[in-house]
Design a protein around this nucleic acid. Structure first.
Lengths: 185, 185
DNA sequence: ATTACTGTACTGATCGTTCGGTATAATGTC
DNA sequence: GACATTATACCGAACGATCAGTACAGTAAT
């Protein structure tokens, strides 16, 4: 468990970059081999399940990151507005301020959608739960907070897509700036 | 030009369905052949440029639809709110009320992004222009209307993604219901 | 008879995956 | 300490399948 897991983890950033940019279908084993510097056979040593195994590993790592980020946002100081702002900063950094798309979205628009949809759904729901928690902690009604958290994800995902389509990361930055106010409205 | 164009157009709905659901990389010629009932030779007869030619044709058709929808929304009766609502209804129908993703988004998340990004950008900008026109016609400041139209696309695209990820089209319907009020706020 | 269209058969390339094997280093046995 | 064993990390070559695309002969329609 110990070292093997470490070795796998070291390839996660590269894999994440590939899958989020080109999607499941757009990433070939040759591309992965080139990007990681590992031969195809070596890839199957670390990820016996092939491409699906790699995606699963990246998703798990992403899930952990999400959990940590959410916890940090909840545990931090300040009112809901500043806490949401802090969470937004983390998110903006993760998405390179709108230059890199979301892997969850990339997975949902491709032929492998059905294979990963349940896991992606669980992750998004956890994310929404964290945002809703910040809002309720700030005194908002629980049901309304739930609705607002849904709006939040809609805006984040939409802004990433539109920023990419317009080739203008500022779209994402503007949306992230508006977001805290929009949620606490 | 006359008949050939007609024949091409008759396959557009099927092609649109394929590309929006599976993306550029996820659609193979075999799938297209199966879905259209056409052999490969026939496909290359109608679309000499192959898959790219098909995408281009669908995009052109989509562009025309967009223009017509926008014109209808602008020419119709009522104030900005009702006009936006009418446009929203058309859009909701086109996306099967949140069950089918947007082809523009699918194209932007895949390996073929760079090939179609300029065209997608032009289409989104025209779309935004139409929405902004409705808003300014309703008395809104031009610059603000421009910002709001950007928000509109962000919400539409994001709602489609999140609805798909959560496997819950109601997310999209809720977003579309909120949209007109949100734009005229 | 010309044009539009289609089915069959084929190409070379690439796909995801597996096989057989080689280093290196740790681990156990005596 | 010497030696066999095992585990880990890696690679080249090849697998069958499928990929996008083409050549060509044939059919259907005008």
């Amino acid at each position: 468990m110990p070292k093997q897991t470490l070795a796998k983890q070291s390839y996660v950033p590269t894999l994440l970059d590939l899958f989020r940019q080109y999607g499941y279908d757009g990433v070939s084993l040759s591309k992965i081999s080139e990007a990681t510097g590992l031969g195809k056979a070596s890839l199957y040593h670390h990820f016996p399940g092939g491409k699906d195994d790699m995606v699963e590993t990246v998703l798990t790592s992403l899930d952990r990151w999400l959990r940590e980020t959410a916890e940090d946002a909840l545990d931090g100081e300040g009112d809901a507005l500043t806490r949401l702002g802090r969470m937004g900063d983390r998110i903006a950094t993760a998405y390179s301020h709108g230059e890199k798309p979301c892997m969850l979205a990339s997975l949902m628009l491709g032929s492998a959608k059905d294979d990963f949809q349940p896991q992606v759904k669980a992750m998004l729901e956890r994310w929404m739960g964290a945002i809703a928690a910040v809002l309720t902690q700030g005194g908002m009604d629980a049901a309304l907070a739930q609705d607002r958290s849904e709006e939040a994800l809609v805006i984040i995902q939409g802004a990433l897509i539109v920023a990419r389509a317009l080739n203008d990361p500022a779209v994402f930055e503007r949306a992230m700036e508006r977001l805290p106010q929009q949620l606490c409205r």
